[in-house]
């Protein structure tokens, strides 16, 4: 069959265009461009070349064997160093100039240990507003081996509620006898031999007056603070942060 003239013209144009496409596809563009394998290899190469921010516990252990050992027996044995200290690969590379972060204030530990109903039962949780407020956690708990501090408990058999309250307060570590003097008789016949109670502002001032020796206790100017009131009219001594 003989094709009419217009078809031959059309075929010529189509052939030119097709040839151009084929030339671009097979000659102009290098074959490596079409290699999926090569593209992916390059993508993997870029991916694995990315820098690391978290060095990993093994890197920390190389220098901090002591902390690692302390941690390895305690409740935090499975907590990686960088969970608290933050990404420290730079510190591992250059330990002298780059120092990792060390969380010391109260905001940090409640990230894990604040009470949340959704947290698993048995996981140690506290109420951050009631649990010894204002004090940094690390004054009572060693983060590398966190055990609840040993609190005085010789009176707790009878005064359990006070003991529990005090155990979470900033007076947690004080013996009951710091403020109360109880005779042996009190243990046998509690009503007949009552323990003493502080009577004066100056008693609290032994720790809390400006210039007092105890460095951890918050200080006030006894002459200016609270006027004629006694301390315990505002501060409950077993949980002194709470202004009842």
């Amino acid at each position: 069959m003989k094709f009419p003239e217009q078809v031959r013209r059309l075929a010529a144009v189509t052939a030119v265009v097709l040839a151009a496409v084929l030339v671009v596809r097979f000659v102009v563009i290098p074959a490596s461009y079409f290699s999926t394998k090569l593209h992916r290899a390059n993508a993997v190469k870029r991916e694995v070349a990315r820098p690391v921010s978290f060095a990993g516990v093994l890197a920390c252990r190389e220098c901090h064997e002591e902390q690692f050992d302390a941690k390895s027996h305690g409740y935090h044995k499975n907590v990686a160093c960088e969970t608290c200290h933050g990404p420290s690969a730079k510190h591992a590379d250059d330990p002298m100039t780059v120092k990792p972060y060390a969380p010391r204030d109260r905001k940090f530990c409640p990230v894990c240990h604040a009470y949340d109903a959704a947290r698993p039962t048995g996981f140690p949780q506290i109420n951050p507003t009631a649990h010894n407020p204002l004090k940094p956690c690390i004054t009572c708990h060693n983060p590398h081996d966190p055990v609840p501090p040993e609190v005085p408990h010789e009176c707790s058999a009878c005064h359990a509620q006070i003991a529990r309250t005090k155990a979470l307060s900033s007076h947690a570590l004080l013996e009951c006898t710091t403020c109360h003097t109880a005779s042996e008789q009190h243990k046998v016949a509690p009503r007949s031999a009552l323990p003493t109670k502080p009577q004066t502002r100056e008693f609290c001032g032994q720790c809390h007056a400006s210039g007092a020796a105890n460095p951890d206790a918050p200080k006030v100017d006894l002459a200016a603070h609270g006027g004629a009131y006694l301390c315990w009219q505002c501060h409950y001594p077993h949980q002194p942060e709470g202004m009842e």
Binding site: F3, P4, E5, Q6, V7, R9, V13
Partner: peptide, 19 residues
């Protein structure tokens, strides 16, 4: 646009229609 074709004979036009 016609690619310089000039053929409008019946035969050519019939081919167009078939195409």
């Amino acid at each position: 646009l016609t690619l310089f074709s000039k053929d409008v004979s019946d035969q050519a036009v019939a081919f167009d229609k078939k195409a």
